[in-house]
């Protein structure tokens, strides 16, 4: 195949493909996982957990710590002060969903949210 034709094909595929990936990314989110089902095998994976905020506090350095509980258990979450997530409106007792990565901190599982819905 001529290089010029290949270039136009590559350009067209890139643009159309980026659009498709963008649309897909707006519609795909991790399925809701009960907190009690999250294990150390899930470390490094993106998950979504939904439930009620049973504890909420902010450290002096600006990190926000919360505990989310559902009918199967609970999980710690930490929103770092460098995160773009707005935690101002959150309060204890709110029902919410956290989307983020599972981490193992000193032998305990926690979620680092990328989004709070």
């Amino acid at each position: 195949m001529e290089n010029k034709v290949l270039l136009y094909l590559a350009l067209a595929s890139s643009l159309v493909g980026l659009l498709i990936i963008y649309i897909a990314s707006q519609n795909v989110q991790p399925v809701v996982t009960p907190t009690g089902k999250i294990t150390f095998d899930d470390v490094g994976k993106n998950v979504q957990v939904c439930g009620k905020i049973s504890s909420l506090s902010t450290s002096k350095t600006g990190h926000t710590f919360l505990i989310l509980e559902d009918h199967t258990g609970e999980i710690d979450a930490i929103v770092f002060n460098t995160s773009k997530i707005n935690v101002d409106g959150l309060k204890k007792g709110d029902n919410t969903c956290l989307l983020g990565k599972i981490d193992n901190y000193e032998g305990k599982l926690e979620i680092i949210p990328k989004e709070i819905r």
Partner: peptide, 19 residues
């Protein structure tokens, strides 16, 4: 720019597990 947009869209999505 094209590779950058690809990175922004994919790395901020849940399409594939981070690892």
């Amino acid at each position: 720019v094209l590779s950058g947009i690809l990175g922004i869209v994919v790395l901020n999505s849940y399409l594939v597990q981070p690892d």
